[in-house]
Amino acid sequence: MTSPAFPVFLFVVISTVMAASILMIAQLVGPKRRRTDVKGMPYESGMNPLHDARQRFNIGFYLLAIEFLVFDVEILILLPWAVAAGGKQTGTLGAGHGVFWVVMVFLVILTVGFAYTWRKGVFKWK
């Protein structure tokens, strides 16, 4: 018997090949016409594009990404506890309420960090 993750790896290959082949079929079948300067121009409501589109952008997006990373890892840490404490068993792994209080302390720290970034105005958009 192969690993339970084996079909997943197979599916990674197959779905990528499927998506790539759709792209390739369209490239092969579609009509090929002459390229012109105007046709290759990015769409900007009929104006000639002024600058490169890849410009500096609002710092807010960057702060949001950092906040997301921190928060996402913290949620990821909660998942194993949820599985261990969940279902029909008593307490976490049958070990009483100790782990529960640890998780509550963890949640408090998480909430304090969240409140700090909120107060700092990370989620404020102008």
Partner: peptide, 12 residues
């Protein structure tokens, strides 16, 4: 979708 022209902008 398949029969239309595939276009890649020149700056892309």
């Amino acid at each position: 979708f398949i029969l239309k022209e595939e276009l890649i902008p020149s700056g892309a």
